[in-house]
Simulated assay, not measured.
Amino acid sequence: MSRSFRFLALTTAAVLLSSCAAMTDAEVPAAAAPVAGTPSYDQLLADVRILSADDMEGRDTGTAGGERARAYIVARLESLGIAAPPVGRLQPWTLDGRTRQGPKTYNGINILGLVEGTRVPDRYIVITAHYDHVGISEGQIYNGADDNASGVATMLEIAARLKDAPPEHSVIFVAFDGEEHGLLGAKHFVQAPPVPLSSIALNLNFDMTSRAETDGHLWVTGTYQNPTFRPILETVPADGSVSLAFGKDTPQDTGENNWVQASDHGPFFTAGVPFLYLGVDYHPDYHRPSDDFERITPAVFASATELSVSAFRALDRSLDR
């Protein structure tokens, strides 16, 4: 996540497909069969653990680690049976971004999936999460378990749920590249959308969803700009120790406490597309080498994920009525 636009410095399709083919079953684990009526979070946790492992090398844009992360996410979408949209599974882009040393041109690749809606298939909810992080700096790997392997895992969990119970709106899933270098993947998606922007009812962006123990909240940013969404989400009850909280989006919220342009929902907002952002507050491991899988409390992450699923379902039911 580049909430304060701080970051640490540090392909082709054929290469990607060969990387996917080389992955073992252990690297792309199948979800364990849960006890009837009891959700299993084994796959959710496995997704974070694998994406934030040292061999992903911090998933920086344009690196071998970023390519491995992309191959893993593509393989997961394929294993879930999530179709590619007509424009294809991959959306490559070239844009100028930022580093601590100055401007740099990046070549990144967004990953797309599509689930068709049952009630309003020509209206779209775009669910997003960035899969890149800041890579390696001074010999230390910034694994980015919370930022943002967790958001990608949450998105994949929602995708799995929608295969079992289809949504009312069509859903485009996008794993963005280049978020840490200036929201680059999201900017390209908005500039070259696979569907008209006017057909997008909502961008629902997940960035840092696993460490809600800081204050017990999964924060919802964007209801100040889109006030009709708040009554819908206020009906979503807490799950375990985690509840939704609203804010960080008003003119009174300044600096690092204003998240309206802090992650990949920013370009959607700038383009006039309704958006909501769900994520936890800052914690001591944010943008540090210590943002590791072992710092995540599974029960807290599971509760935040259930809240995310419930938030999506409530919005999906209520929009375009």
Results as ranks from 00 to 15, higher is better:
Pro289Leu: 05
Thr118Lys: 05
Phe312Gln: 06
Gly182Ser: 04
Ala75Gln: 12
Leu197Trp: 03
Ser52Arg: 01
Ala160Glu: 13
Val28Tyr: 10
Gly279Lys: 03
Thr228Met: 13
Ala311Met: 11
Pro166Val: 04
Arg100Gly: 04
Gly88Gln: 00
His188Gln: 08
Thr128Arg: 06
Asp253Glu: 05
Pro85Thr: 03
Leu114Pro: 09
Glu180Lys: 02
Arg211Gln: 13
Gly247His: 08
Thr270Ile: 13
Gly66Arg: 08
Pro231Val: 04
Gly81Trp: 11
His130Glu: 07
Glu306Ser: 04
Ala262Asp: 02
Val171Leu: 11
Phe5Ala: 13
Gly108Met: 03
Gly178Cys: 12
Ala21Phe: 03
Leu8Phe: 04
Asp146Lys: 10
Pro92Met: 09
Gln140Trp: 03
Ala238Met: 09
Phe275Met: 15
Val171Glu: 07
Pro92Lys: 08
Thr250Pro: 00
Ala271Ser: 00
Pro39Arg: 10
Glu78Lys: 14
Ala304Leu: 12
Glu157His: 07
Gln191Cys: 01
Ala149Lys: 01
Gln43Trp: 15
Ser170Trp: 02
Leu162Pro: 00
Pro194Cys: 06
Asp320Ser: 15
Val195Ser: 00
Ser170Lys: 02
Glu67Pro: 07
Arg70Ile: 07
Gly272Leu: 12
Arg68His: 15
Tyr124Trp: 06
Val280Thr: 13
Pro194Asn: 01
Gly102Tyr: 01
Ala149Trp: 03
Gly97Lys: 07
Glu168Asp: 11
Pro103Tyr: 09
Leu156His: 11
His169Asp: 05
His133Asn: 11
